[in-house]
Amino acid sequence: MRNPGLLIIGRALKRLVSNPAPLLSGLGMSAFFLFVYDAAIGGIGFLPEFGGAGYMAFLLPMGVVSLLFASSAGSAQALSRDIVSGYFQRLALAPVPRSAFVIAAILADAAGIFASSIAVLGLGALLGAPLTGGLRGVLGTAALATLFGGGVSAASAAAVMRTGKVELAGTIGSAVFMLLFLAPTFVPRELMGARWLQVVSAWNPLSYLMEAMRVLVSGLGDPGAVPIAFAIAGAAGLGGTALAAMSVRKVLN
């Protein structure tokens, strides 16, 4: 492995595997939410607004998006450990672009989110969600989660690098968690009780993400949501990664 880029990504993946807490806690949270919400309100799945595929099919994207709250903190935590130990400065002295260390950590997070998304979809299938979109739907959903999750991960890393505050590693994920309750997560937009919530959900990027996942996984809803969701997730992934890469200098200066 002569390519330093591969070497750096290899180190980031190794650190992800040796410290799987963010990934495992993301998976645990997703599984818990799927079980609990299905048990609590799964009975409404017979309503025609849910498309006749059962409540788990509707709820499943929530499980995938829930992964991001915890799983996307991995890169920020890994960078925090390097910054606190001083090792980040050692890495920054190597004759390779400094942003490579940050981008590698984000890619490792993204790889973890991709694998976890597929695991959550598998769990959903076991719990009764029909994966009518097949392998293409599963991979498309995992790709959406990976792009958006990579963006959240990158924004978390940028927050830590710009402020020097390690405790900010999980804050961006927490903000996304709040957005989940302002989206058509548990019921479709037309069943939302308050008009203001319908308006907010129309501006909430997670709405389009979950609606696209429903189209991809179970064929539910408007297929027009898919390109919009990929545009949002792509912008989040690229924008977050660019922001994180530009934040490296803050750690050193």
């Binding site: 650190r15 040796s18 450990r81 390097d82 130990s85 001083g86 090792y87 400065q89 050692r90 002295l93 190597a94 004759p95």
Partner: peptide, 16 residues
């Protein structure tokens, strides 16, 4: 950076 080696006052090692 390829030409220099650096050891600053605080150790810069990966404890893990």
């Amino acid at each position: 950076r390829a030409l220099i080696g650096v050891a600053l006052q605080d150790t810069q090692i990966d404890p893990s």
